[in-house]
Each structure stands twice: as C-alpha cells, then as structure tokens.
Computed example of a mutant assay.
Amino acid sequence: MNEPKYEAVKQALLHQIQAGELQPGDKLPNEEDLMNQFQVSGITIRKAMTELANEGVITRIKRKGSFVNGAQAADNSSHLIAFILSAEDNFDVSYMKIIKGAQQAAAEFNYSLIVEWSNENLAVEQASIQKMLDRKVDGFLIYPFDPIQSKDNYLLIEKNDIPYLLVDRYNVDHPGYFSGCDNYDGAILATRELIRLKHSKIKFASFHFFLQSEQERFAGYCSAMRQAGLPVTDDDLLTCIDYDALVDSIFKRDVTALFCSNDKLAIEIIGQLTGRGVKIPQEVSVMGFDDWDHAGNLSIGLSTVRQNFEEIGRNAANLLNQVIQGKTHGGNTKILSGVSLVIRESTCENPYV
C-alpha cells in the first residue's frame, strides 16, 4: 500500500532532525514553504506537524511557528507536561482559566500541555496518570478532588521519578510542590469587611471541609473574628446546612452574615434563603470566595474574594519547569497568588445595630 502523504512528510522531517539538518531549537519552515518543498496540500502539512507535536518532536507556538524540541534530541525528553484535573464541573470557567495560564507559561519554554479530566474518580485519575507515564511526559500538574485520597496516585508518579505539582489543593501531611491562592489572608479580608459593616454574628459555611484550602479559609475567618474580640464556637462552622433552622436563626437575628467557603455554595445559599422569604442583604449579608464567573451576573451580585486563576496556572507551570530543569529542589515549594476583595450587592451594613 502507498504511504500516506502526511506520513511521508513526517518521516522526511524526522530524518532531517535525526541527521542534524534541523538542530534543537531551530524553527521549521512555515506551512507555505513546506507545501512547496513537498508538493502537498496545507491539510497534509498540518496533519504531519500535528503528529510530530503530539509525539513531542516539535513544539508549535501560536503566531511564532514550530520549533525542534532541543530536549528531545539531547536527552529523550518528551517536552510534554500532563495536567490531570479531577473536576466537579468540566464546564467551570475557573478550570479553563487555570489551564490557559499553564499553557501560556509552558509554551514560553517550548512545552506542550496535555489535559486529562478524571471527574473525581481515583481509579480514573490513576489510569490517566499511567497513560501519561506511558507517554513519557516530563512532569505533571495535578488538580485533585481530594489530595488525601489521591496519595497513592502521587506515589505512582514518585516511583517513576517524575516531578509533579498540585494545583489549588494539597495534602499537608504529604509535602510537595504547590500553586494556589492565599486562602488565609483572603478569608481575613472578607471577615474584616463584614465586621466593618457592623456584623458580629457571622457564621462560616463550608462546602468541602476536608480540603486544606477550606480549612485555611476558616482559620482566617477565626483569626479576624478573634482579633475583633468576637467569640468563635463550633456552632459557627456550618458543614451541613439545615436551611430551615438557618432561616429561623436569621429571623431571630442570631445570624446577620454568612461567609461562604466558595462562590458555588454562596450562590446555593442565596437561592435557598430567598426561596424561604429571606431578603438579601437586608436580613443577612452573604460573602463568597473565588469570584466565580457567574458571581457578578446574578440578580443579587455576590460580594466575594477574587483569586487570579490564570496566575495560579502560570505559577504552576513556571515552578514545574524550574523543578524539571533542576533549578528548584526540596520538594516543598509553594507559590501563593494574591487575592482581593470584590464588593457587590449581597452585603450591606447591619441594619439592626
């Protein structure tokens, strides 16, 4: 059978790279020049280039061109980074922003990013990791659903001596490289704002309290409350919300503000409370955390703590590159992105003071 035209182009370019005619870091001819050189269509050239990129032989950078991967020729490096996301909602724009930031940073040092979704399933996460190990990736970025439960999956990577970095969530008992936001200071900012609005009966509502990130936000809330001379008891942490009981507490003025561990929970709470006749923010103020894309587009705009998701992704890829290049050692470096307060309509001064 005749060899497909794209395969002939691919093999010809591979031969040039292996023979040293194209050196590591060299820019390949553009699509039009390759079409003329091989007397084939643009579709054929793009197919050949895509295969070379998927195999880690070249890196394609938008608006710059295609380049021979120097590490590929020198040390059999794939120039591939795997990003494993154990996501609760694959359509959440915050994940897309993290991926975008990581891709942009990876491209700057000629790495391609391969994204795998594992949907909160440890077995699927492990299978994704093994699949990427088989592809000989140079490193992993991992956004885990539960970093404690995923410990055995990390050990699989460690046994293969491949560097990896956790994004957004980490296991405090299993030190590692990490990129996330400053949860503690963000929670202090949010709680102090509610206190500035003359709220003293503030409760913290948790979404997944097993996560270190939520525990850090609760610790920030506790710190701000105590610094203001306000007591914090076990009853101030809501991990399983009884909405009827919460509404009763609001109408009795035992709760005047809620600080939610993330925007998804804050939006759910606003829906549940307004459905039971609670006026927001007149009867209770609600504060979130994340500045999720929907937070400003609700009928009641959500006051929240903004984290820069693209920056988290960029920090993750940059730090992983440092580890791959041997410029960072120790296995316990953490980069925290800054946070800021965004005030909208869901909070107001306590009218009952």
Rank of each mutant, 00 (worst) to 15 (best):
S206L: 10
G275R: 11
R169P: 06
L238C: 11
L319T: 05
P175N: 13
I280D: 08
V68T: 09
I148Q: 11
K100S: 12
G331W: 10
A19K: 08
T44N: 02
D291V: 11
K100Q: 13
L211P: 10
I99V: 12
N321M: 13
S346L: 04
L52H: 04
F210E: 08
S337W: 05
E311S: 06
D182Y: 04
D146N: 15
Q282V: 05
A295L: 08
D290V: 10
D146M: 01
A190W: 00
Y95V: 03
I195W: 03
E108R: 14
Y164N: 01
S261Q: 06
K136L: 14
I81G: 00
W117S: 00
K252N: 14
N315R: 06
Y6S: 08
P29L: 13
L319N: 06
S337H: 04
P175C: 08
V255P: 06
I43Y: 11
N2V: 07
G288I: 01
S200H: 06
F67W: 10
L319G: 00
H15P: 00
I202M: 07
L336I: 03
I43R: 09
P281C: 03
I280L: 02
L230H: 06
T333V: 12
S200R: 02
Q11T: 12
K131T: 07
A190C: 09
Q11Y: 07
A53E: 07
D248I: 03
N183F: 01
D173K: 15
A317V: 06
N350E: 13
D152L: 08
K5M: 13
K100V: 00
E216H: 02
I241M: 03
K100F: 12
G101S: 03
Q126A: 11
A107C: 06
E283Q: 14
A73E: 05
A317F: 05
N160E: 15
L302D: 11
T256S: 15
K252E: 15
S303H: 09
C260R: 04
N262C: 09
L298G: 05
L319E: 01
E310S: 13
F67N: 10
T333S: 12
F289W: 02
E21T: 02
S299C: 03
S77N: 10
N160M: 04
F204N: 09
C181M: 12
I98R: 05
E310P: 09
F289K: 09
D182I: 02
H15C: 07
E268M: 09
D26Q: 03
H208C: 00
E193M: 04
A106I: 12
A295C: 04
N332L: 02
N332V: 04
M35K: 09
G301K: 05
R306S: 14
F140K: 01
I98T: 07
E120F: 03
Y6F: 15
N36T: 15
K252Q: 14
G277T: 02
R306D: 04
G313Y: 01
M49V: 08
A317E: 11
I270E: 15
A73L: 15
F209V: 05
A316V: 09
A12T: 07
E32M: 11
I269M: 10
R226K: 12
F207K: 08
L320G: 01
D173Y: 11
L298I: 10
Y177A: 07
G296V: 02
F91G: 00
